[in-house]
């Protein structure tokens, strides 16, 4: 085939490279997409990261929901982490408070971060927290301890078939990544 009749490959190559670049971007776009998708459907059991407002919520006394709490620490996190009660029974719409306790037995100051996970995941959408220690980093000096309250109500819209759900908090040691953040909480 002579050079003059050689087909032009350039345009096709450009298109294919565009697909490659687009798909590389798509890989990263999956991260926010995943979060948005899980936010809407609640399927990964993540709760809101900001405080809910308790205002004009009617209490549905016709049914009771059992909320169970599990505390655990990530490996390498030395804190003792417990909750005052393993489970509470609430009516949807009713405010409740649960206290969590943390003690730092290590000889160094540590900043903790609690990450909640709700199971079954759909219930996460209906767990409204007006106050939670998981909204902020929790610094504890060596040997110190703290009471960490969590106030919540269950949205009355909670599907009828969910009568029981579990909230698990995992404490992570985030000292290294927030080393530059001053201790602003007691």
């Amino acid at each position: 085939m002579s050079a003059s009749e050689r087909p032009q490959h350039g345009r096709l190559v450009v298109k294919l490279v565009a697909i490659v670049v687009g798909m590389f971007g798509f890989g990263f776009a999956l991260v926010p997409l995943y979060d948005v998708f899980c936010d809407i459907t609640g399927i990964n059991g993540k709760t809101e990261n900001t405080a809910a407002v308790y205002d004009g919520v009617t209490v549905d006394t016709s049914r009771t929901v059992t909320v169970e709490f599990i505390t655990r620490t990530n490996s390498g996190m030395p804190w003792e982490f417990t909750v005052e009660t393993r489970r509470v029974d609430v009516h949807p719409g009713e405010m409740a408070q649960v206290n969590f306790f943390a003690r730092n037995p290590a000889s160094r100051d540590i900043v903790g971060q609690a990450v909640p996970s709700v199971s079954p995941g759909q219930a996460a959408l209906f767990l409204n927290k007006t106050e939670c220690f998981c909204f902020n980093h929790q610094p504890l000096a060596a040997g110190a301890e703290a009471v960490m309250p969590m106030k919540f109500y269950v949205d009355p819209q909670l599907p009828e078939d969910i009568r029981f759900f579990t909230v698990q908090y995992t404490l992570y040691d985030v000292t290294a990544s927030v080393a530059d953040v001053a201790m602003n909480q007691g």
Partner: peptide, 14 residues
């Protein structure tokens, strides 16, 4: 290949 190898590249980059 051109559709998914870039996604693998993204995953290892992350």
């Amino acid at each position: 290949l051109i559709a998914v190898m870039p996604v693998l590249a993204g995953a290892v980059t992350m």
